[in-house]
C-alpha cells in the first residue's frame, strides 16, 4: 500500500472517530491504461472534500458528486467509466480505458461504534 493510500486509511479512522459520515470509492476493475490500479481509494466526506486519487485526475470530481449521493442514500453503487482513447486525447486527459469504481457509504452510528469498542476491550482482556 502506497503512502497515499495509507493517508486515505488514516482519514477514514479520523472520520470514524468523529462519527462523521463519508463514502469510500475503490477501483475494483481496470482495463487499459487508467492511471490507478485495483485497490486505489478515495475518501469523500459529506461536503465532497476528498482524500486520495482513483485516476490521474479525470474522474475524481465526478466520483465525489456521486459519493455525496451515496452518503445520503446509504446505499453502495458500482460506477463504470468507459473512456475512449480518441475522445480523451481530444480533451487533453490522460486516462483512457474502462474503470469500475465501487462507492460505499461509511456511516458509524453511536451504536455500532460502541459495539466495536466493547469488542476491542474484550479482545484486550483476552
Amino acid at each position: 500500500m502506497t503512502n497515499e493510500q495509507l493517508e486515505v486509511m488514516r482519514a477514514i479512522q479520523k472520520l470514524k472517530a468523529k462519527k462523521l459520515p463519508c463514502a469510500l470509492a475503490t477501483v475494483i476493475k481496470v482495463k487499459g491504461s487508467a492511471y490507478r490500479k485495483e485497490g486505489a481509494k478515495m475518501l469523500i466526506d459529506a461536503d465532497g472534500v476528498t482524500v486520495g486519487l482513483i485516476s490521474g485526475g479525470c474522474l475524481e470530481a465526478d466520483v465525489a458528486e456521486i459519493a455525496k449521493e451515496v452518503i445520503k442514500t446509504k446505499a453502495p453503487i458500482i460506477k463504470t467509466y468507459h473512456l475512449d482513447e480518441d475522445e480523451v486525447w481530444g480533451l487533453g486527459l490522460g486516462c483512457p480505458g474502462t474503470v469500475h469504481i465501487y462507492i460505499e457509504p461509511i456511516i458509524y452510528t453511536t451504536q455500532n461504534i460502541e459495539e466495536v469498542d466493547e469488542c476491542a476491550k474484550e479482545i484486550g482482556a483476552f
Binding site: E115, V116, C119, E122, I123, F126
Partner: peptide, 10 residues
Amino acid sequence: NVQKKLAPFD
C-alpha cells in the same frame, strides 16, 4: 465469538 462482532470492514 467476540471477534465476529467486529464488522469485516472495521
